[in-house]
Every structure is written in C-alpha cells, then in structure tokens.
Design a protein around this nucleic acid. Sequence first.
DNA 1: ACACGATAGACAACCTGGTTCACCATTTAG
DNA 2: CTAAATGGTGAACCAGGTTGTCTATCGTGT
Lengths: 154, 154
Amino acid sequence: MSNDPPGFELPLRLFLGFRTLIDALHAELARQGHPDMRPMHGFVMQAVGVDGTTAVELGRTLGVSKQAAGKTIETLERLGYVERARDPRDTRRKIVRLTPHGLDALARSARIFDELRAGWAATLGEERLRALEADLRLVTPHEVFRLDVPGWFG
Amino acid sequence: MSNDPPGFELPLRLFLGFRTLIDALHAELARQGHPDMRPMHGFVMQAVGVDGTTAVELGRTLGVSKQAAGKTIETLERLGYVERARDPRDTRRKIVRLTPHGLDALARSARIFDELRAGWAATLGEERLRALEADLRLVTPHEVFRLDVPGWFG
DNA sequence: ACACGATAGACAACCTGGTTCACCATTTAG
DNA sequence: CTAAATGGTGAACCAGGTTGTCTATCGTGT
C-alpha cells in the first residue's frame, strides 16, 4: 500500500519507547539512591542474578569476552553493586554476587518498571497495552535473555 | 492488577523489536554491498541528509560534541560514505555530503525497512501493526529526530 | 577600517567499554 | 602424573565519547 507509514518509523518508535522507559527508570532510580547506575548496569546485574556468577559465565550470557565482562564487574564492584569472593571448591573461580545495594537496585527497578507500565496502561488502556505486548512477542525472539546489548551499537 | 505482565518485559520487547529490525536491516545491507555499515552509521547518515551538513551542525543534531561528530565523520569518510569539501562562502566551514555510495546505502535502507515492515504486517496484520505504531506514537516524544542515540548507553 | 567577539574545525589528553593475544594458576581427564 | 582445559588477569589496541586549547575566518559595532 502506498499510504502505509514509512518502514523506518517502526524501529525509531520502538527505540524511542525503550529509551523513554529506560530514561524514566534511571531518573527515578537516581531519586531513590542510585544516581550512579547506568542503563547497562541493570542488564548486567540482571545477568548476575541472585545466585551469582563468574566473569567467564557472565561474558557468555552477555555475549561479550570474559575480559570485557571482567572490566564491567570491576566497575560494578567499585560502585558497590557486586562483590567477588573466591570459590572454595575451585580456587580459580571468583564468584560475583550482588551486594545488598545491588539487590536493592534490582528490586527498585522492578517496582519502577511496573509503575511505568501502569503509566502506559493509563494512556493506552490495559487492553491495548496487552495487545501491544502480545504483538511484540510475536515478532521478537522468544527467549528474552541473551540480548547481547553491550557494545552492540557502533 | 496482580496478573499484569511484569513491567520489565515491555522495555525488553521494545528493545528486542528494535534490535531485530536493525539486525535484519544490516544483514540485508551487507548482502547488498554495504558490509561495513554499522547501526550507528545509518543514524548519522540520516542526520547528514541529502543537503549535507557540517561537524558542528551534526553534533547539535545528534546531541554530541562537535569533536565527537568530527570523529564519526572521519570514520564515515574512510568508509567512503561521506566526503568533505570547503564551503566557498565561508572557508572555515567544511561541508559534509553523502557520496553516491552513501546515498545508495540510504536508499537501500529505506527499501529494506519497508520490506521489514511488510514482514511484520504479514505476521500481525496491517491493522494491528498500524495500531501498534499509533500506540507507540502516543507514548513516545513527538519529534522522531534528535534521538541522541550515540553513546547514550553505558 | 578595523578590532574584537563568535564560530568552525583540528589536535591532544583522557574515559569507558569493547576487542585480541598472551600468560599464570588451578582443575580435570587420560 | 602429565597434559589439556578452564578461570582470571594484564597489555595493547580500537571506537566513540568527553573537555580544553588553539588557529583561522567571519561578522559586527564603533
């Protein structure tokens, strides 16, 4: 159809939607005691998970080299979001775990995301928002994780 | 509602949708003679536009410093997508213009985006896709451009 | 007419987050 | 028990971002 919207608007709107939510999240996180958290940190901490992980494992999960994962862990450690301890069963390994501060950030993020979703629901209506989510599920990979976000751009 | 989807799925799906489209675009672009083009380049070339621009102007458009814009221009120049020439009316200025290769990339991108949108329309139906686009317009900033994508992550 | 402020571009130093290559320490398998 | 595989680290490099400084040119006000 010649009166279809141009194809380039779709990715732009998707990105703007994503960015809008993430920016709002981090504005609110900053207000709630996490001013240093960058967008990437949330993804990484989510990948670290409550059970902890290692640099090699994290690299695999995020789709980056173990060295890159190590650097990011260092940054997060310096900011107090994660801590490292040697694995007693395998002294080569260093287990990365979320600190209470990191767990707090994750819990607050979840709450804020719910609130932001509620805001969209207020604008669009719960039905249309559900339809939007359902449609997106149809056109995106099923597994939500293994989104190698870091360094994907550029 | 306690049975609402968790709020974190929304940004994830938006990002995955964006990423899916952009990855498909660049896979196809690579097949069509533009293997070196990175996701960022498309945004920058779009900002350069058919009329050309300058480093300072480009920096303002993209929301980055003029030096950063200058570096990106250098990269694009090295790849043959843009060329620079002094402005005869103001010899301080250097006009950045798309080369035929750059214009080709932009034209192909537009066509591929249309095809990708058609693919989504085939999955969702044109009506639901239009509704999705309309909904996204309601919850994102009106002006599509001035999305300072570069370096926003991290 | 000209001096001075504003502007365009370039260069340098630095930061972050990615890469590869190389290496050491430890664990595991043959 | 040696050899391969694995986890972590360090170095050198790249892309792209930042700020600060500098030069050349333009434009304006006296």
